[in-house]
Design a protein around this nucleic acid. Sequence first.
DNA 1: CAGGCAAATAATCTCAAAATTTATGAAATT
DNA 2: AATTTCATAAATTTTGAGATTATTTGCCTG
Lengths: 221, 221
Amino acid sequence: MTLSTAVYRELRTEVLSGRLKPGVKLRAEDLRKRFNIASSPIREALNRLVSEGFVALEDQKGFRVAPVSESDLQELVLARCAIDGAAISESIRRFDVPWEEGLVLALHRLSRASRQADEQLPVGEMSWENLHREFHCALVSGCGSRWTRRISEQLFDAAERYRLLAAQQISERNELAEHQAIVEACLSRRPADAVDLLQRHYGMTFSVIMGSPDAPALQAD
Amino acid sequence: MTLSTAVYRELRTEVLSGRLKPGVKLRAEDLRKRFNIASSPIREALNRLVSEGFVALEDQKGFRVAPVSESDLQELVLARCAIDGAAISESIRRFDVPWEEGLVLALHRLSRASRQADEQLPVGEMSWENLHREFHCALVSGCGSRWTRRISEQLFDAAERYRLLAAQQISERNELAEHQAIVEACLSRRPADAVDLLQRHYGMTFSVIMGSPDAPALQAD
DNA sequence: CAGGCAAATAATCTCAAAATTTATGAAATT
DNA sequence: AATTTCATAAATTTTGAGATTATTTGCCTG
C-alpha cells in the first residue's frame, strides 16, 4: 500500500469516527510532522477526501474537516430514506437468494455483537459498528446496482459520523428490534412495510442524534 | 483558482466528454509536459478524480481513465431510475413554487437550444448539453435534500459520459417531447406518471447508447 | 476606530533526485 | 517450445529544500 493510501484511510477513519472534529484545520505541515512523511502523500490523501465530502477545501485557504449542521443531517437522513428505501424495495422485488441469506447472516452476527467498545475485541471479531455497517450494506445489496450500493455506503458513513460525533453514550434504544423487524418484512416480501420500518429507523436516528447532549455542537461549526 | 483545481476541471471535462477514452493511462509525466506545470498539482487533481470514480487508481500502477462496461451502464441507469425517481416524486409531493418555476424555465431554455454543436455559440449562451444538465438538475431540485441533488448530478455526469462516448451522431429521437411530458406530469402533480416517464426516458437512453455503432467499444475496455 | 500597509504566516507550486515497485526481455532451465 | 530466473529498464511514489503567491496579522496613521 502506498503512503497516500495509508494516510487517506487513517484520516478518513478519524474524520468518520469523530476523533477529528468538524471545522478543524488540516495543515499539511502538521500532518507531515505527525506521520513523519513528506507533504505530497498527505496532500494527495486530503484531495481524495475532498471529493468524498469528508474534507472541505477552499482554494488558497487549505483543508478543513468538513463542517456539520442540523440541516445537513436532516437532508442526509432524507436522502437515505429515499435512496435506501428504493434500494430495499427493489431488493425485495428481485429477491435473490444470496441477498436473503446474506441478510439473515448479517442480522445474526449483529445480534451477537456487544456494543461495549471499551472491552478488547477477540482477534478476528468485528466491532458492533462494523457489523452494523455490514448489516445496512446487506439490506440494499440485492438492488442490482453497484452504483446504488456505493452511494448507500457513502451515505451510511456520513450518517455514522454524525452519530459518533453526537453520541458518546446514547441510549441503546433497542435497535436490534428495529433491525429484526426490517429483516422480517424483507423475508416475508412486504416491501411497503420494509421501507416504512427503514425510514422510521432513520428518523429515530435523527431524533436521537439531535436530542443528544452533544447536539448543540452541531450549531457551532 | 489554483493549478490543482484548474487541472482537475480540465481533466474532468475531458473524461466526461469522452475526449479521454476509458482505460487510457494518465501518466503524471505526460500531463506535466502537456500542461507545462510540475507534477504535484497534477497528482492532486488525479486524486480528486479517483474519489469521484472518473479515474481509476491501482497502487504502484498509476492512474487510468475509469473503464466502462455494459453492465456498469446498466447498473448506472438502474441507480438513476431509483434515485431520480424518488427525488422527482418527493419534489412533486412538496411542490415548491421555486421548483415549479425553475423547471418551466429550464424546459423553455432547453427547447430553444440547438443540438448542433459544431456551429459557434453566441457568447453567454449555453450548449444543449449544459442546458440538458440544468434541466435534469431542475427536475430533482425540489426534493429537499442537497445530498440527493449532488448524487443525482454525479449520476447524470457519469451517464452523460456514456452517451458522449457512444454517440457522435445519435438520432435526436425527439427527446424534447419526452422532457415536455415529464414536466407536464410534474406540473399537474401526477407523481406516478412523472416517475414512469422519467424511467422510460432513462431506459431509452440505455437502449440508444447500447445500440449505437460505437457500443461494441464498451466491451474492449 | 477605520483603513491601509508591511511583515509574518500559510498555501501552493517547482525542481531534482532518491527509493520503491513493476515491466521487459534475454539467458538459462525444464 | 514453454517456463523460470534474473538483471535491467521504466514507471510510480516519495523526499526535501526552496520559490512563489495569497492570506492573515498587527501595527501605524489618519
